[in-house]
């Protein structure tokens, strides 16, 4: 049990996909205009990550070496399309906000990366834990980035205005702000966790 817990916590800090492994940068930058968007994108990725990790750990022993990448991609794409259906049906507004970046989870290097590096060598349960850990790490970083950008850019937290007045520093909601915030958060992460 302890080892499984460690798999989950590793994903949060030591193997944090955003700040340490630098994977999945595109959705990280594009969808974090507010905390809630970042959180939703993270959860969507988490969903695909856990399910595809489990499925791949099951089928890995019978998949021939030379076609393993296409097979994995098909499996991942299936879960992504499933996610698209579910979001369209039950959270259509969020589906529209995240837009292109939902189908693009297919090419998120985190998902294929975990399949290659972990799921094809481990059992179903471990793979699920690994997916959960990395997914949570991704969700946390996205939410933090969204929080910072929303706070600076719009003066609100999860849509609640806390500064008063309408205007934040607009720059942080726009494209350059995404890079700027990410850069400084990386610096902070380095200062705190890397010696």
């Amino acid at each position: 049990m302890a080892s499984k817990l460690k798999l989950i916590t590793d994903g949060l800090v030591k193997n944090n996909p955003t700040f340490v492994l630098l994977l999945g940068m595109c959705p990280t930058l594009a969808t974090t205009t507010s905390a809630i968007n970042g959180l939703s994108m993270g959860l969507a990725t988490l969903f695909v990550l856990v399910l595809s990790n489990m499925a791949i750990s099951l089928i890995a022993p019978v998949v021939p070496d030379k076609v393993h990448i296409p097979v994995y991609i098909v499996v991942i794409a299936t879960f992504v399309t499933l996610l698209q259906f579910i979001m369209q049906a039950y959270t259509p507004a969020m589906y529209e906000t995240l837009g292109l970046f939902i189908p693009l989870i297919v090419v998120n290097c985190i998902v294929l990366g975990r399949a290659e590096a972990f799921a094809n060598k481990h059992g179903v349960l471990e793979s699920a834990c690994d997916g959960l850990g990395v997914g949570l790490g991704f969700t946390c970083s996205l939410t933090v980035l969204g929080l910072v950008r929303e706070l600076l850019g719009a003066g609100s937290l999860f849509g609640h205005n806390i500064i008063g007045g309408n205007d934040g520093m607009l720059l942080f909601v726009l494209a350059p702000g995404a890079f700027l915030c990410l850069g400084y958060l990386m610096v902070l992460f380095n200062k705190l966790f890397k010696k």
Binding site: L171, A175, G177, F179, G183, Y184
Partner: peptide
Amino acid sequence: KSFKGVPIAVISVAILAMAFM
């Protein structure tokens, strides 16, 4: 030291993105 590598690169992209805005 903390800025070395990717962080400073990302921050320079921010300035580049500002130019493209």
